[in-house]
Design a protein around this nucleic acid. Structure first.
Length: 277
DNA sequence: AGGTTGACCTGGACGC
DNA sequence: TGCGTCCAGGTCAACC
């Protein structure tokens, strides 16, 4: 079995959210432990403990790259627990006797004894809570559902490179480095092209490519979710076969040209100089 | 205000 | 072998 660890982008986050939802929906959170590593918590730890303790988990879902746990609390306003996995974050559902992995930063003990654990070695992940009726919307447009006209409108007049625009979460949320490069390759667009200069046709191709690549990755993720969420966090995802990401210097799978590596928006970017114009 | 850059982290890969 | 250096990247603050 081929196992590969990948960065959590939209498809991975959705896979984890669905897997955790199937396991904990309807359960009550009895106790909450946090690690005291300040940068991991966007809300204060006391705030998180107060919001989560005794709450019932109504639903676990995804908004952008954030896992959202909707909580019902008797006699209080509803709340949402927001989990951003950062680069190395994992959200696991474990029996209490399974030893805590290193770099565990939060543990939610459920009424049935199981534990929801947030583990994050590199600590780019963030935990926070929202209380009140307003549901978390995320900073930008949702790439899996945004209609093509709205998608195109997002880039109108923008001077930044299309690759940087795809990574900008306040424009479009959920797309990271891997799927930005993969969708630009499939759409035949150079990563450095100015976002506002793209034609209707190019934007339509990009919109379609992005949706296709994301939904394909979500489908593949579904087959590995139980390994991931139930395990101690060692296993990763079955990956979409990358056509350009991390293949710099290798031949393009479409035309054979050597794939080029550049930096756009501060991120490593790989593209085919022939297929992407 | 839009756009760009660097800091935050740590494990793994690589070079000498 | 072991040490040092570099690289990965999501987000945010700071800057232009």
């Amino acid at each position: 079995m081929e196992i590969d660890q990948t960065m959590p982008e939209l498809p991975e986050v959705e896979t984890v959210a669905n897997g955790v939802d199937a396991r904990v929906r309807g359960r009550r959170i009895q106790r909450v432990w946090t690690s005291g590593k300040p940068q991991t918590f966007k809300s204060s730890e006391a705030e998180i403990v107060a919001a989560l303790t005794a709450a019932r988990i109504k639903l676990v879902h995804r908004v952008g790259k954030t896992i959202v746990m909707d909580l019902l609390r008797t006699g209080k306003e509803p709340a949402q627990f927001l989990i951003h996995l950062g680069m190395t974050g994992r959200l696991l559902v474990s029996q209490p006797e399974v030893p805590l992995p290193a770099h565990t930063h939060a543990v939610l003990s459920l009424s049935d004894g199981r534990e929801v654990r947030f583990v994050d070695p590199r600590r780019f992940g963030r935990l926070s809570v929202l209380t009140g009726a307003a549901a978390y919307q995320g900073p930008g447009a949702e790439p899996t559902t945004v209609p093509v006209e709205e998608f195109s409108h997002l880039f109108k007049g923008r001077k930044l490179a299309i690759k940087a625009a795809l990574l900008n979460q306040s424009i479009l949320h959920g797309v990271g480095n891997i799927y930005a490069d993969e969708s630009l390759f499939r759409a035949g667009i150079r990563p450095r092209r100015q976002a506002g200069q793209l034609t209707r046709e190019q934007l339509a191709r990009l919109h379609a490519a992005l949706r296709q690549v994301l939904s394909q990755a979500i489908k593949l993720g579904g087959s590995s979710v139980s390994d991931y969420v139930d395990a101690d966090g060692v296993r990763g995802f079955f990956q979409l076969e990358h056509k350009v990401y991390s293949r710099a210097g290798q031949p393009c799978l479409q035309c054979g040209s050597v794939l080029k590596k550049i930096v756009v928006g501060g991120r490593t970017t790989v593209y085919c100089p022939r297929c992407q114009q």
